[in-house]
């Protein structure tokens, strides 16, 4: 099984790489952080004795992606799975961020994801099932004041995935969307969860469980994975409560949190 993972040098990408390594898959890892890629490659080879190839790449740059694809084509690598993890957010309200920072969220979370998904679908192994996983977010279900661009970008991924799921099902392509709550990926994430108090803690998903279950569900042909019972309830509520009401509650809630964290 040949698997490509974007955003593989940190957070959920690194955990998914670990999970795939544990299952003995061959990995092609990409991230903008070249040192981080070399470290995780080394760690995976030492732990699981698997084949790991890496390519540092800025997915928001078409030229950088073309260079990576040229390497893939040169070695005639064909894939069985694509894990679209690369993504970003800048904390803080819309007008507190620089204009280009906001644009960059969409460039990476959406434009770059489209670019790599299209490219790797073209390079999938012929005649075999192919799995795509999109990392969306619980935020995809809610308009989120103070995280407006991020939430909207994740909604884009959710809708894209649901559409592709139908469009490509006759071509033996399965599409899974993961919609997790918070995950403890960095020390900064811990502070963010702490600042949200009770709700921050109960909606947090253990990284290692999300990684394991995501691969299990992708292989089982599932289309959506919302980790945690409470998050599934919130996900459902997102479908039935008027979106303007949700936005008002979230604004009230996050205003308090941002005062605490100073964002």
């Amino acid at each position: 099984m040949n698997v490509m993972i974007t955003g593989a040098a940190g957070g959920l990408g690194r955990s998914l790489a670990n999970e795939c390594g544990r299952r003995g898959y061959n990995l092609f890892l990409t991230d903008v952080n070249e040192d981080g890629l070399l470290c995780i490659k080394q760690g995976l080879e030492r732990q699981f004795n698997v084949t790991v190839a890496t390519a540092a790449c800025d997915l928001t740059n078409a030229e950088s992606v073309d260079q990576m694809l040229a390497v893939i084509d040169k070695h005639q690598i064909r894939f069985d799975m694509l894990l679209n993890v690369a993504g970003m957010d800048y904390e803080g309200g819309f007008m507190r961020r620089e204009r280009e920072e906001l644009v960059r969220i969409v460039l990476l979370n959406n434009a770059a994801t489209l670019r790599i998904t299209h490219a790797i679908l073209k390079r999938r192994r012929a005649g075999k099932p192919f799995n795509i996983v999109f990392l969306s977010s619980l935020a995809s279900m809610f308009p989120m004041p103070l995280k407006a661009t991020y939430a909207a970008s994740k909604r884009f991924l959710l809708d894209l995935a649901i559409s592709l799921c139908q469009e490509l099902k006759n071509e033996n392509v399965h599409v899974l969307t993961i919609c997790p709550g918070g995950m403890v990926t960095t020390q900064k994430a811990i502070h963010g969860i702490e600042a949200q108090g009770f709700w921050g803690t109960v909606t947090t998903n253990p990284l290692e469980c999300v990684a394991r279950n995501a691969i299990d569900r992708a292989l089982a042909g599932k289309s959506i994975y919302v980790p945690g019972i409470l998050n599934r309830i919130l996900f459902f509520l997102g479908k039935i409560i008027p979106r303007s009401w949700i936005a008002a509650v979230i604004h009230w809630r996050w205003s308090g949190v941002t005062e605490v964290t100073g964002h």
């Binding site: 690194r14 670990n18 040192d35 470290c39 760690g43 030492r46 732990q47 990284l207």
Partner: peptide
């Protein structure tokens, strides 16, 4: 560490 977190090597 309260939660499972990994180093750069994934440890």
């Amino acid at each position: 560490r309260s939660w499972y977190m990994t180093t750069e090597e994934g440890y």
